[in-house]
């Protein structure tokens, strides 16, 4: 269990991150909001609850870039004026993470199925150099359709890359349908186990759940894969767990209602 203070700090970080990216999406009239709401706590915990300064984050689900940019504004890597360029002409902050221009974004992502291999390469380099660096990779469940993801999975297990933490944002929705209707993934845990991972399940919106994952990682004898059960578009009441949250921008009073909802959630989860 997290200490009360740490837990509440993480909650505050997540609240700031979500409020910031909602503002970004609103200003840009852009979509992929549901994808960012799905992985906000995962990214928050990696950055503020787990990683060391030299570790890397690979957001393989690059379409949630706004949540990554907002995270990097929260840790001071990006400035507010950087953030305000999001989605505009002449920006580095495109709808998918850029190549080589932003600290803490080592690789451009967005074409699905590349991120786990990137993590494998960085993880292998760290193993060869014995520098203790960890690599956190956040994949969507939709990109488990990509064969290259499974090539990377085989490789990570075979090379015993225990310095990689593979988070799967299991919101059960992908580009044009529910994951189980488009390309059946279940039994996902069994698949990952069969590949040789130590498979952990987490409530993907709960920091205490991630803290348990962190403890398990330290004791794991095999590379770990974390199935994070999440809700796409969480807090966007009209579109929670709906495909629309993947594509649609906010309209009318949605911005205010989502903000109210995440604020309410923050207050309810805060340990008093």
């Amino acid at each position: 269990m997290l200490q009360k203070e740490k837990h509440n700090d993480l909650l505050q970080n997540a609240l700031n991150i979500k409020k910031r990216f909602l503002q970004m999406y609103q200003a840009a009239n852009a979509g992929h909001i549901g994808s960012s709401l799905s992985c906000a706590e995962i990214l928050t915990f990696i950055r503020f609850g787990w990683m060391n300064e030299t570790d890397e984050i690979i957001l393989s689900k690059g379409h949630a870039a706004a949540s990554l940019y907002s995270l990097l504004a929260e840790d001071g890597t990006l400035s507010q004026s950087d953030i305000e360029t999001y989605y505009k002409n002449n920006t580095y902050l495109a709808a998918h993470p850029p190549a080589g221009k932003i600290k803490r974004i080592p690789f451009a992502t967005g074409s699905l199925g590349h991120g786990l291999s990137i993590a494998a390469g960085l993880g292998l380099a760290s193993k060869l150099k014995k520098n203790g660096k960890k690599v956190f990779c956040v994949c969507s469940d939709g990109e488990l359709n990509e064969g290259s993801t499974w090539e990377a999975a085989l490789f990570i297990v075979h090379q015993k890359l225990k310095n990689i933490v593979w988070f799967i944002d299991r919101n059960k929705l992908q580009g044009f349908g529910r994951t189980e209707d488009v390309m059946q993934m279940e039994p996902l845990a069994d698949k990952l186990k069969a590949f040789g991972f130590e498979v952990l399940e987490a409530d993907g919106h709960d920091f205490n759940s991630f803290e348990k994952v962190k403890d398990s990682f330290n004791e794991a004898t095999k590379p770990i894969a974390v199935i994070c059960n999440t809700i796409k578009g969480r807090s966007w009441k009209q579109f929670e767990d709906k495909l629309d949250s993947h594509y649609l921008p906010m309209k009318d009073n949605m911005f205010d209602s989502i903000n109210a909802e995440i604020e309410l959630h923050y207050q309810q989860t805060l340990i008093k």
Binding site: G121, L122, L128
Partner: peptide, 26 residues
Amino acid sequence: GEEFINAGVAEQNMITVSAGLAHEGF
């Protein structure tokens, strides 16, 4: 030695892993 890696018959992963290695100075 250990810096010879047989990445298997998985060329997509092989290329991206190599990109990761190159990023770290190899």
